[in-house]
């Protein structure tokens, strides 16, 4: 990856609750988002992918607490700051301006009793106090046209819009202040596939035009492979594998990534018998010792249940032929560690 980093997460830990009863939802996660890239974050429910997004933007509501790590933001102008150290007023200016978020179930995040105009201009009013009313309306119209909605929809209430349009209004709102990073948390889960593809196409185009970076969170790994540059796969609060989308698809190294890829029936090619992954996702309150995946792992062997494998770059891939993208990928699995 040649482009510079825009967001550097290192060793981030997020707990829900305090003391012994705390649930460790995100454990020691390190990730780098490069400028202009789409980073996909895949995992099942409870894997900590949404918690990670909320942690990074410091939107966790109690009992969620960040217990360690740092999140360094590198603006285009140079310099860098740790988001976790920002004071409340700095944080308020930072959010939306630098990082914006499209929430899970975004279709329902619009306020039903206000028009689209009120909700779009509200952002501008809060963050750009100097703008006149006419300027704000003009910007709101521009934003709507950006996502392909005609500007006469400004006067509509959310219930007058279809699900896809509401989702696009949310995306327009996220782009209102030209952020550097947009985090999309399951942006299309509630939509039909046809609408999903339209919206993702639009996002791809906008990203090229407006040059922002994207963190794309979803459980649908086949969608991620198609739309992201790099993919990080989470399981039980940790990242178990990170690599280029193509490399993950062609040679998933972690047995969980492999299992996840084989949980989606293909639409083309030969019809294969698929099994999914046996067992259930782990209970965060009672995580298995060692690698969290070992009770479900078909390839588990002796060290797996004792020690947690570290997320290591794949420099020396054992004795056999190194998998593609070797230098550029990391995996947390004893199968791929030299011991």
């Amino acid at each position: 990856m040649s482009s510079p980093a825009v967001l550097d997460i290192s060793g981030l830990c997020v707990d829900y609750g305090l003391g012994d009863s705390a649930v460790h939802a995100v454990r020691d996660v390190s990730l780098t988002l490069h400028r202009g890239e789409v980073l996909g974050l895949a995992g099942e429910s409870g894997s900590g992918k949404s918690t990670l997004a909320y942690g990074v933007t410091r939107l966790l509501s109690p009992p969620g607490v960040i217990t360690g790590g740092s999140v360094r933001y590198h603006p285009r102008a140079g310099g860098s700051s740790d988001i976790l150290d920002l004071e409340p007023d700095q944080l308020r200016a930072f959010r939306w301006q630098e990082i914006s978020l499209v929430f899970q179930g975004a279709m329902n995040s619009l306020n039903p009793v206000h028009t689209v105009r009120t909700q779009l201009t509200d952002v501008l009013q809060a963050h750009r106090p100097g703008m006149s009313r006419a300027e704000r309306t003009a910007r709101a119209e521009e934003l709507l046209s950006l996502v392909g909605i005609s500007s006469d929809r400004l006067a509509s209430y959310p219930h007058q819009l279809s699900g896809g349009m509401r989702q696009r209004v949310m995306i327009a709102m996220a782009l209102a202040l030209d952020p550097e990073i947009v985090i999309l948390d399951e942006p299309t889960t509630a939509l039909d596939v046809v609408m999903q593809r339209q919206i993702l196409r639009q996002l791809t185009r906008l990203r090229r035009e407006l040059d922002f970076s994207v963190v794309f969170i979803t459980h649908d790994i086949s969608l991620l492979i198609e739309f992201s540059d790099r993919i990080a796969i989470m399981y039980g609060g940790r990242i178990v594998e990170e690599a280029n989308a193509k490399d993950i698809y062609e040679t998933a190294l972690h047995p969980y990534s492999d299992g996840l890829l084989h949980s989606f029936p293909a639409l083309h090619g030969p019809r294969r018998e698929l099994t999914g992954i046996p067992g259930s996702p782990p209970d965060l309150k009672a995580m298995p010792a060692g690698c969290a995946f070992h009770p479900r792992c078909p390839k588990a062997f002796e060290p797996c249940e004792r020690r947690v494998p570290e997320l290591l770059p794949l420099t020396r891939a054992g004795g056999d032929t190194p998998p593609p993208g070797g230098a550029d990928r990391t995996v947390a699995c004893w199968l791929h560690a030299d011991h």
Binding site: V193, E226, S228, D229, A245, K246, A266, L267
Partner: peptide, 12 residues
């Protein structure tokens, strides 16, 4: 419209 990993586009 269905997601299809075989249609890899490299960064969409």
């Amino acid at each position: 419209s269905a997601p299809d990993p075989d249609r890899i586009t490299g960064a969409g």
